[in-house]
Design a protein around this nucleic acid. Structure first.
Length: 158
DNA sequence: GCCAACGTTGGC
DNA sequence: GCCAACGTTGGC
């Protein structure tokens, strides 16, 4: 049993699924993560954990708002769907390889916190922050309480 | 178990 | 559209 809320950052390509898309649904299963490190982070998630919603592969990459974890981790159903882009022939319902959580919209940022802005305070965010590490492609990552606060301060500064 | 080749991510 | 960085695959 864990008492503290944990913080995360999750990337999505807004052309595929944006924070505005998330706002229109009750909850969204975060399917399609096929990276072990990202999967292992999702396995640590608990309902109520807070999530920075990051838009990648777009004109202005950055954090566009906040979501929350809305379920415990469970097997990603798309790994079993033969027609799915995310089908994994090595996964079986008895031995699933990929998990996900449901995610719920919380709020938009007043102004996005851009990747450029976060790179500008790279030292404040620390060495271990995958987002500002060159070439990191990790799509789900933990955010420390200090990093969370620092990024919210950036939002407040607009 | 090494590592070259390949595919993907994602910023620019 | 380019390409650097990275993870995965598969031959040996």
């Amino acid at each position: 049993m864990r008492q503290r809320k944990h913080h995360w950052l999750m990337k999505s390509e807004p052309d595929a699924f944006s924070i505005s898309d998330l706002e229109r649904v009750p909850t969204e299963p975060w399917s399609g993560v096929r990276n072990y490190q990202a999967r292992n982070f999702m396995r640590q998630m608990q309902p109520g954990d807070e999530v920075f919603f990051y838009h990648s592969n777009t004109d202005v990459p950055g954090i566009y708002g906040i979501a929350e974890v809305a379920s415990l981790p469970y097997p990603d159903p798309t790994q079993f769907e033969r027609d799915s882009h995310y089908f994994d022939p090595k996964a079986t319902p008895e031995q699933p390889r990929w998990d996900l959580v449901d995610v719920r919209f919380v709020r938009h940022f007043k102004t996005p916190v851009t990747l450029a802005a976060m790179k500008a305070i790279k030292d404040d965010l620390g060495e271990g922050f995958a987002l500002t590490q060159n070439g990191s492609r990790l799509s789900v990552m933990p955010v420390t309480p200090a990093q969370w606060k620092r990024i919210l301060k950036l939002e407040a500064q607009g």
